[in-house]
Structure formats: C-alpha cells, structure tokens
Design a protein around this nucleic acid. Sequence first.
DNA 1: GTGTGATATATCGAACCTATATATAGACAC
DNA 2: GTGTCTATATATAGGTTCGATATATCACAC
Lengths: 180, 180
Amino acid sequence: MDVKTLCLGALDLGDATGYEIKKMFETGIFSHFHEASFGSIYPALTRLTDEGLLTCKSQQQGGRPDKKIYSITAEGRRALAQAIERPVSGDRFKSEFLFVMLFADMLSPENVTNLLENRIRDVRGELNELQAEQDSCVNPGQEFVRRYGEAVMRASLTFINENRHLVENPVRKNEVAPVR
Amino acid sequence: MDVKTLCLGALDLGDATGYEIKKMFETGIFSHFHEASFGSIYPALTRLTDEGLLTCKSQQQGGRPDKKIYSITAEGRRALAQAIERPVSGDRFKSEFLFVMLFADMLSPENVTNLLENRIRDVRGELNELQAEQDSCVNPGQEFVRRYGEAVMRASLTFINENRHLVENPVRKNEVAPVR
DNA sequence: GTGTGATATATCGAACCTATATATAGACAC
DNA sequence: GTGTCTATATATAGGTTCGATATATCACAC
C-alpha cells in the first residue's frame, strides 16, 4: 500500500499536519502494522494536494515552522474507498531478532539471553501501548485491529517465556559439557 | 539488516546461486521473517565477492544461463559473526489487511467477509509451510524460529475465528436496522 | 551554557523493490 | 500451433521509500 493511500487513510480520521501523520505511524494507531517516513510522507502530501485529493491550510506559529494542516476532499475520500476495495497484498515482515536467532549457536549464552530479554521488553512495551489504546477506538474495525495486535503480542510473549530454554542453553553440536 | 548480511547468513547454511538465495527468502527458511528481491540480492552478491567475503564459481549449464555458485569465505564468516552480535533493530511490519480493516465500515459486508476468508486461507497456508519444515531444522535456533512463527500464526487464526463477528455484521454507526 | 527532546517543514543520497530483459524447457489450455 | 504459466538462471533500470540531515524555536535537565 503506497504512502499516498496511507496518508488518505490518516486524514480520513481527521485533519492533520505532516508531522502529526508521521506520529500516527510512529506511536499512534497505525504504528502496529504500518510504517512511513518523513521522506515519503511529505512528497506524498504534496502530490495528493496537487491531484485535488487533499487541501492544505497554512497556519503561522510563533517560534516554530508554519503549520500546514491537510484535509481530505470528497474526491480524496472516493480515492480511499477505491483503494481499500482492491485486493490486499500479503503482509511484509522483517525481523532482525528472528534472523539472528537462526544463528543463535554462533552467539555466546549472554548474547542470547540479552536478545531474548530485550525482545520480551519490546513485546511487553507494544502490548502495553495496545492496551492503553482501548478507550480510543472509535469504530469496530479499529477495535478488531487493536485486539488482533494484542493477541499476536501475547502469543509472542508466551512463546518466548515457554521456549527460551531451546536456545539459551542448548547442547552445542561440537561442544563438550564443562567440567565442574 | 542489510541484504549483504542476509546473503552471508544464507551462504553460511551452504553454497548457493543468487536464484537459490532468492528462493530461500521466498519460500524457504527465511521467508517467514525477512524479504529480499533479485534487485538487491545480485548487487549485494557482487559487492560481497569484490570485498572478499564470498567466492564465486561459474558452472555452465546446457540450455540455461550459466550458474554462479557462491561460497562464504572465512572472512565472510567473521563478518557475519560480527553482524549478528550487533544490537538488533525492531521488527518491520506492514499489513495491508490490518490497514484496510481499520476502515471496515467503509466496505460492504461481502468485502469484509472476503477479506477475512482470504486472510484465514493465507494464515493457514503459512502455518502449513511452517509445520512442513519441522524435519528440516538442523539446529535449535532454527527450531525456535519455526515454532515462533507457528505460535504467531496460530494466534492469528484463533483470533480471527473468534472475533470476526466484531467486523462482519457490526451495527453501523449511522445505520438503521433493516425493517423485516 | 550545552545537550536532548519536542514540534514543524523539507530534501538528498542510499537502499531496496518492481518490472523487465535474456535464455531454455515443460506443462497445460484453447 | 499459440499463448500462458512455471521453473531455473543471470542481470538491471527506474520508481519508491528510508535514514539522515537541515532549519528554527522552545522547554527542561545538568
């Protein structure tokens, strides 16, 4: 899904600045299942405005860059509706954690434990954020997506806690048990 | 994690052609948690070879392009070991399905059901692939990663089946129940 | 005072993806 | 027979996005 569509979606939820849209993808409602960078958001907003799918109002701010507030037009809403009716393509998922875990036997036990502990901390953080958003879901779709994220994060957490022994102190292939 | 490191990791598992490496990311062991395209794999292989981290043997093939078989060098192994010791960055996840589900109330009930059914089919497919790989995991790290994927896919499937009612026939915000 | 984080806009160069090209073969449908 | 798709292989151009950075100001901590 291209960034233009993502921005249309964000603005369907309400007027916003480019910075606020980025925030939505960074720590807000979209952050659990999509990404978009300043480098792609601003050019997309400009293009969408040129195409008549958005309008933009400049607001002066004391001591700060002027604020450009973007709004979706009726035409923009139609474009969004068309975009979400198209067949979706598959999830895109890249995890350095899982890639590195494939080579866990190349790491020291301390490294593996650190990896797992950091992972647990990250997943807990994500779960807490999702839970904190419980009262801000304004339609059933949002609630469904929030809970979906919760279910997946919970499963991750449970899995790691129950299976970390597989990689934390495995019998190394060519390793002899330490003599004590 | 850049594609150079991904290729080093792939070749640590055994010699391979560029095409075979792509296959590992498309349908093989890496496909559940990373991606890499031909457009990035081939330039990366060339760079790694120039840097002495890989060697390359050309093999003629009747009726086909010559096969270039890449092998990791000792230096390449060291570079891989260093790369996996670095702190990992967070998962990258983009889901058009979840983005669209946020706007489920803009879709017809048929569309929503199609979306969910397609999602269930996809997740089942992924789960089947992961299960089929059970006998090809050669170290505990690989088994951990495979099971992690299984756990997450199972949770997704369970969640959808138990919660689809939230979005399949929600009471629409501005909708009056049909008169029967 | 300096450094960091926040609110805002914007963009450049690097990295990667998509689509395509080339080549051959086999399977299948019309 | 022709066209399409899949498979095995290599390669790359143009498009998209990201990461880093720039600019500006303020608030806060040390």
